[in-house]
């Protein structure tokens, strides 16, 4: 109850601060979703991506 009161009064009472909260929240949320997506894809395809096999092909020394 106290938490929700605090959240409402600081972030959502005024329209301007609510808008700011929404924008910042969206940016942070998207960063989080991006990181989550990348981690899911890298886990599921572990061992098959280029970054996993790049170590097998080290750069050749200049002849």
């Amino acid at each position: 109850m106290a938490v929700s009161n605090f959240v409402y009064n600081t972030f959502f009472k005024k329209s301007s601060s609510a808008a700011l909260t929404v924008v910042v929240g969206a940016i942070l949320f998207e960063r989080g979703v991006d990181a989550f997506t990348d981690s899911v894809f890298e886990y599921y395809n572990r061992g098959r991506l280029w970054k996993n096999i790049a170590h097998l092909y080290p750069p050749k020394p200049e002849d």
């Binding site: 894809f41 599921y44 395809n45 098959r48 991506l49 996993n52």
Partner: peptide
């Protein structure tokens, strides 16, 4: 859904 190409 989430399978990618196999680089090797």
């Amino acid at each position: 859904a989430i399978g990618l190409y196999d680089a090797a």
